[in-house]
C-alpha cells in the first residue's frame, strides 16, 4: 500500500494548526498549491521523461477557467473548478498529440513557446481575462459553517486536496501502468516494442499533469480572490522546474519536499526584492550539477556516507 505517502500530509495537517501561526499557515497553503502543478510536472518530466517548460500555462488555465466560470456563468466554485480542470485536460490532451511529436530540445522550445503564448494571451484577451489588471471578486468555495476564504480553514482544504492528488499519482506510478510510463521515460523504442502505444501514453500523462496544475490554479484563484497574469508566466514554469529538480524528478515524495524546501527558503526573501530569483537560479544550477537525483537523495547519500565514516569509530 502506498498510504505511507500520506504521512507527511497528515503530519502537516496535525501540526501546523497547533502552532497557530498565521504566517506559517499561509506559507503552508502556498506549498500545497504549488505542490499540485509540481506533481504534474514531475509525472511528465521525471517519470515519462518529457521536458515541459510551459506548465505555468495550465496552472493559469485552471485559475482563469474556474474564476471565469464562477464569475461570468455564476457557477458554484465547486462546479467551476472540476469543469475548468476537465477543459484544461482536454486542451492538454489535444496539444499533446502535436507537441509530443517533438523530442529533446525541440520539445523544450515548443513547450516554452506554448507557455509564453498562453501568458501573452492572459494579458491580451482583455475582454475575457481583464488584461493585466486581471479578475477580482472571485468567490471562494462556499461551505456552510466554514469560511473557506480564511487561511485557517482553506489550509485544510488545500492540504486534503493535495494529499488526495499525491495519493492518486502515487497509485498510478506504482501500478503496472506506471511501469509503462517509467519505461517510456527510459526508452521510447523499448516501450513501443512491447506494444505500449507511446504517443497516446504521453498525451494521457500530459493531460493528467495539466489537470493537476489546473487544480492548483483553481484553488489558488478561489483562495486569493483575484488573479492577474503575472504569476502564470514563464518564471513560474521555471520555479516549478526548480522544485521538481530539488525533489529529484522521479520521486512523488520528493516533489513535496522540493516544493516545501524551495518555498521555505525563498518565501522570506521575497520581501527583500528579487533575491529569491537569484536563489532559485543558483539552486537549479547547483542541484543539476551536483545532485542530479535531487537534494533529498543527496542528503540521504551524504548521511549514509557520514554514518559509514563514523561507524568504525563507534564500533
Amino acid at each position: 500500500m502506498s498510504l505511507w505517502r500520506l504521512l507527511p500530509f497528515a503530519l502537516v495537517l496535525a501540526v501546523v494548526p497547533l502552532l497557530d501561526s498565521s504566517y506559517l499557515t499561509s506559507v503552508a497553503i502556498i506549498i500545497a498549491l504549488h505542490a499540485l502543478p509540481a506533481l504534474g510536472l514531475s509525472l511528465v518530466m521525471g517519470f515519462a521523461g518529457q521536458i515541459s517548460l510551459g506548465h505555468a500555462a495550465f496552472y493559469g488555465l485552471g485559475a482563469y477557467g474556474s474564476a471565469l466560470l464562477a464569475l461570468r456563468l455564476g457557477l458554484s466554485p465547486w462546479l467551476a473548478t472540476p469543469a475548468a480542470i476537465a477543459v484544461t485536460g482536454l486542451v492538454a490532451y489535444g496539444l499533446g498529440w502535436s507537441i509530443f511529436r517533438l523530442r529533446g530540445h525541440h520539445l523544450a522550445l515548443g513547450t516554452l513557446g506554448l507557455g509564453i503564448v498562453a501568458s501573452i494571451g492572459f494579458v491580451e484577451l482583455r475582454g475575457v481575462t481583464g488584461g493585466s489588471i486581471g479578475l477580482s471578486a472571485i468567490p471562494s468555495y462556499p461551505l456552510p459553517g466554514l469560511d473557506l476564504a480564511a487561511d485557517q480553514s482553506f489550509f485544510f482544504l488545500a492540504w486534503i486536496v493535495a494529499a488526495l492528488a499525491f495519493l492518486a499519482a502515487g497509485n498510478l506510478v506504482d501500478s503496472p501502468a506506471g511501469l509503462a510510463i517509467r519505461g517510456l521515460g527510459d526508452s521510447e523504442r523499448g516501450a513501443a516494442s512491447l506494444g505500449i502505444g507511446v504517443a497516446r501514453l504521453k498525451c494521457r500523462i500530459f493531460a493528467l499533469s495539466a489537470m493537476l496544475a489546473a487544480l492548483g490554479g483553481a484553488l489558488y484563484a478561489h483562495y486569493i480572490g483575484f488573479i492577474s497574469p503575472q504569476p502564470f508566466g514563464v518564471g513560474f514554469s521555471i520555479k516549478l522546474l526548480v522544485m521538481v529538480a530539488i525533489g529529484g524528478f522521479r520521486s512523488i515524495g520528493g516533489v513535496l519536499a522540493g516544493v516545501a524546501f524551495a518555498t521555505l527558503v525563498t518565501e522570506p526573501l521575497q520581501d527583500l526584492g528579487y533575491y529569491d530569483v537569484v536563489v532559485f537560479g543558483a539552486l537549479l544550477v547547483v542541484i543539476t550539477i551536483f545532485c542530479p537525483a535531487g537534494l533529498l537523495q543527496a542528503v540521504r547519500d551524504g548521511a549514509r556516507r557520514g554514518i559509514r565514516l563514523l561507524a568504525p569509530r563507534a564500533g
Binding site: 502506498s2 499519482a169 497509485n171 501500478s175 503496472p176 501502468a177 506506471g178 509503462a180 512491447l194 506494444g195
Partner: peptide, 20 residues
C-alpha cells in the same frame, strides 16, 4: 512486468483510484 502491461489491459485512469 512492463512487457506485459499492454496485454493485461489495465487501462490508465483507473490506476489513479486503484490500490497499486
Amino acid at each position: 512486468v512492463a512487457g506485459s502491461v499492454q496485454r493485461a489491459g489495465l487501462g490508465f485512469w483507473r490506476n489513479l483510484v486503484r490500490p497499486p
